[in-house]
Design a binder for these strands. Structure first.
Length: 869
RNA sequence: GCCGGAGUGGCGGAACUGGUAGACGCGCCGGACUCAAAAUCCGGUUCUGGCGACAGAGUGUGGGUUCGAGUCCCACCUCCGGCACCA
């Protein structure tokens, strides 16, 4: 039987069948039992799994299987982020309907996930394009409309004038529509927004509590929210002599540096500012209008292209503002470096303390007054750091922070302005002019305006059986679908034909898993499982998805649906899967990329790579660097092929063995073979042990030194692997420790009966230690070893501290910090004894003799450093 | 420009709390088995000198703190990621 070869396909089919029969991963709420909710970001059903999915879901599966074995009540669900643009593209390409294509992909990918043995509770599967899912999101939206958290305003979109359709950013290639090739226009249309800015402060503060989130993600979110403290105040419009505007108009500005107000030498409005029209003087009008038109047409890229010390574009309005600090007028300009969407869309300009203002002042011949003294010898331009105030009357001599405070207080006392906090974060635009998304539940009535669809008429169902040509959304093209009656006045009305941003669906799916069949958006089961104990997904979601789902959680909390403030306590962002790229330049000068699976790498005697050749023709190819797996670089590896060739366990093992989860994983065929070799070795070693027949009970007190040492290694490994999986999340080092242990076991002489008992204990431990990573083979080996019950719910092994006690420890002996010898001692030996023993060693004597011992540093059981001179 | 992360053998990576640098895997070298090859098994593998015992050097660069630094501090270089006219 020991010769029975390891056949992954057979072993894995058997294990999967067992789990299904036993409904092994079905999660049931058990009040009083510690729960663990482990969630991986749900996939978009693009057609097939890629290695990134495999890695992501393996990480999640390892964590949840570990916690299950520790006795926790684990929920690990899976679902489909099923709405989205790719379905529309595929529908055109394959002449099918987006729904059909999506459902087919889901079928296929579900099969792939099952084949990989992920421990999901499939009874909780959620598919976001189903009305039974999105109806709740529609209901929530209508409630947000009623309480003012959802509102409508104009916003710009990319408009394809040929196809007469709105394009997503990804559909704009080099400024042209991807299908028509027409130059894309910017067009302002009314769209729906959610007031995420109402939660800016809470979203920011909440980050401090998320100890289990990566710093990188929290930093990105902090920057994205972009909180800045300052003051907002009003300045009267006046003429060059300071005479007030007869219309009494004023401009509000926001500044983070009210302390520098005495250095204001001009002010600027954004080109879109509503006052531009009114205050521009007659002689400046023509030029101002030209500038405004130019700014409106310029793409964002064009506007940004001027950045970085280049001349700032702008024009004078001919009007002036009255600086309340100096009681003098300053000229008012228009410039496109001031954005309408931030602050008040108007700024006071202080060239002495702001580099952009400095640049603008320079190119427009405006005066520069420093109001913070730069250090002696400073030869730069704007000084933005701390220092004493100068040229600032009653602020002179004060440091920046103090001056800021005093200036702000003055504004408040004078009733000119107030303290103000601004955020960079903008409200979330949720309208998409696409077909394949959740219909926005709104009705437009000529008499009554925009109204939420009444709750008893929900859901607004998206028709799935459509002919999709991709030019216009089928629901936009169908007047019948649009036609409805006004819920207020009963008159004729039209439905909204825009759909939600797909981030809407992914903002609350995690909560729906808790109660997928609930007759409301959520029920009381949500609070049993939430918050998510471990969330896992790609870093590319650091800002948008991870911000939106935190926001939506707070919306649900405020609607009384959940009790927690945050959706996930711990977050892990796994690294990308990367691979070598190989290419050749074709005759037309373009690069042709070859799949690493088709390339052979030649090495020198040391193993360093010297050349790469294409297997097919034996001709060389050039190495193009290590890149994220992608179609464009043709360096993707299909997990399907790997699973067929090596089995799911090998693929799972490799995908977490070569680097820690948060780092990128470098694909290597030989690495996969190494993983496979390891599993075959474990297989044959365990079978060989089982073949030796039953063995006697372990008597820990009766072991000889060698047996005790073997047993110590086993229990050390248990402790290390447990810590690596639960605390450190370094599965690579856990696997290394298991491999090390099996290497020791292979060399261990098990001819003595008690030795066999030690070995049996070891294998029972090893099989459980790798079970979260390679569950199928472990299921089989566990049962052959006679383990109790199925492996997936076997007790996680616990290290026996008594077995870990050492009889002897190795003490490193240094002389002047240089390693000179190692000595064996009993644990806990004192410095005197250690020193005596060390000085008896020949090599130590050589380095110490003839010198005076100045100092001895002793770290018990670790190190002895003898300092001589 | 600002903010984050990282630089360690031929390669991926270990070294968690300042205490044996290079665990584990890959690759490579040697051996066993074989008619042979593959597979498998055993041994070796940072560099330099030496038969060896050993000795010297070594974690991006240059300084520093310390009995002792991959780890801490200062300055710099390179790479990756995010944000980028946010007043």
């Amino acid at each position: 039987m020991a010769n029975q070869p390891y056949n992954p396909a057979e072993v894995e089919a058997r294990a999967i069948d067992k789990w299904e029969r036993q409904e092994a991963f079905r999660a049931v709420e058990q009040p009083g039992v510690e729960k663990f909710y482990c969630l991986c970001m749900l996939p978009y059903p693009s057609g097939a799994l890629h290695m990134g999915h495999v890695r992501n879901y393996t990480i999640g599966d390892v964590i949840s299987r570990y916690h299950r074995m520790c006795g926790r009540n684990v929920l690990q669900p899976m679902g489909w982020d099923a709405f989205g643009l790719p379905a529309e593209n595929a529908a055109i390409k394959h002449d099918t309907a987006p729904a059909r294509w999506t459902y087919q992909n889901i079928e296929h990918m579900r099969g792939q996930l099952k084949r990989l043995g992920f421990a999901y509770d499939w009874s909780r599967e959620v598919t976001t394009c189903r009305p039974e899912y999105y109806r709740w999101e529609q209901l929530m939206f209508t409630r947000l409309m009623r309480n003012g958290k959802a509102y409508r305003k104009d916003a710009e979109v990319n408009w394809d004038p040929v196809d007469q359709t709105v394009l997503a950013n990804e559909q704009v290639v080099d400024g042209r529509g991807w299908r028509s090739g027409a130059v894309v226009e910017r067009k302002s249309i009314p769209q729906w927004f959610l007031k995420i800015t109402d939660y800016a402060e809470e979203l920011l503060q909440g980050l401090d509590e998320l100890a289990g989130w990566p710093e990188a993600v929290k930093t990105m979110q902090r920057n994205w929210i972009g909180r800045s403290e300052g003051a907002e105040f009003e300045m009267q419009v006046c003429d060059a002599a300071g005479a007030p505007d007869p219309g009494g108009r004023a401009v509000r500005v926001f500044t983070t540096r009210p302390d520098t107000s005495f250095g204001m030498t001009y002010a600027v409005l954004a080109p879109e500012h509503p006052l531009v029209e009114e205050i521009t003087t007659a002689e400046r009008r023509a030029e101002v209008e030209r500038f405004v038109a130019q700014a409106r047409e310029a793409t964002e890229e064009d506007r940004l292209a001027v950045e970085g010390g280049l001349e700032k574009r702008g024009v004078s309005t001919g009007a002036y503002l009255f600086n309340p600090f100096t009681r003098k007028p300053v000229p008012l300009y228009l410039a496109d470096y001031v954005l309408m969407g931030y602050g008040t869309g108007a700024i006071m300009a202080v060239p002495g303390q702001d580099q952009r203002d400095w640049d603008f002042a320079n190119s427009h011949g405006l005066p520069i007054i420093r109001t913070v003294a730069p250090p002696d010898g400073w030869e730069g331009e704007a000084w933005v750091e701390d220092g004493p105030a100068i040229n600032s009357e009653w602020l002179n001599g004060l440091e920046v922070a103090v001056a800021k405070e005093k200036a702000t207080q003055w504004l408040v006392e004078q009733r000119i302005g107030e303290r103000k906090v601004n955020y960079r974060l903008r409200d979330w635009g949720v309208s998409r002019q696409r077909y394949w998304g959740c219909p926005i539940p709104v009705i437009y009535c000529a008499a009554c305006g925009a109204l939420p669809v009444p709750e008893d008429e929900l859901p607004v169902v998206l028709p799935e059986d459509v002919t999709f040509m991709g030019v216009r959304s089928p629901i936009k093209a169908d007047p019948e679908w649009r036609k409805t009656t006004c819920p207020e006045c009963g008159g004729p009305a039209e439905r909204e034909t825009d759909t939600f941003d797909t981030f809407m669906e992914s903002s609350w799916y995690y909560a729906r898993y808790c109660c997928p069949d609930a007759d409301s958006q959520l029920d009381e089961r949500a609070d049993y499982w939430l918050p998510i104990d471990q969330y896992i997904g790609g870093i590319e979601h650091a800002i948008l998805h991870l911000m939106y789902f935190r926001f939506y959680h707070k919306l649900m909390r405020d609607a009384g649906m959940v009790a927690s403030d945050e959706p996930a306590t711990r977050l892990l962002c796994q690294g990308m899967v990367v691979a070598d790229t190989f290419c050749r330049e074709e005759d037309d000068g373009k690069l042709h990329w070859f799949n690493p699976a088709d390339v052979e790498v030649e090495r020198d005697a040391k193993g360093g790579p010297v050349a790469a050749i294409l297997r097919e023709d034996g001709e060389p190819v050039s190495f193009g660097g290590v890149e994220k797996m992608s179609k464009s670089k043709n360096n993707g590896i299909d997990p399907r092929v790997l699973v067929e060739r090596y089995g799911a366990d090998t693929v799972r093992l490799f995908s977490v063995s070569d680097s820690p989860p948060h780092q990128s994983l470098e694909w290597s065929e030989s690495g996969v073979e190494g993983a496979s070799r390891f599993l075959r070795r474990v297989w044959s070693q365990v079978l060989a042990h089982v073949d030796g027949g039953p063995c006697e009970a372990l008597d820990a007190g009766a072991l000889d030194a060698g047996q005790r040492e073997m047993r110590r290694l086993v229990h050390d490994a248990i402790a290390k692997v447990s810590d690596d999986i639960s605390r450190r999340y370094t599965f690579n080092t856990a696997i290394a420790a298991i491999m090390e242990l099996t290497n020791h076991l292979a060399r261990f002489d098990d001819s003595h009966p008690q030795s066999r008992a030690v070995v049996r204990e070891a294998w029972l431990a090893v099989v459980r230690l790798i079970a979260p990573i390679t569950p199928h083979i472990c299921e089989e080996l566990w049962s052959r070893l006679g383990g109790a019950g199925p492996a997936y719910c076997a007790d996680w092994p616990v290290a026996d501290e008594a077995a870990r006690e050492r009889q002897q420890v190795t003490l490193v002996v240094q002389v002047n910090g240089k390693l000179r010898a190692r000595i064996e001692l009993e644990p806990g030996a004192g410095q005197e004894q250690a020193l005596e023993q060390a000085l008896a060693v020949e090599n130590i004597k050589r380095h110490v003799d003839g010198k005076t011992i100045r100092k001895v540093i002793h770290v018990p059981d670790r190190l002895l450093n003898i300092v001589v001179a």
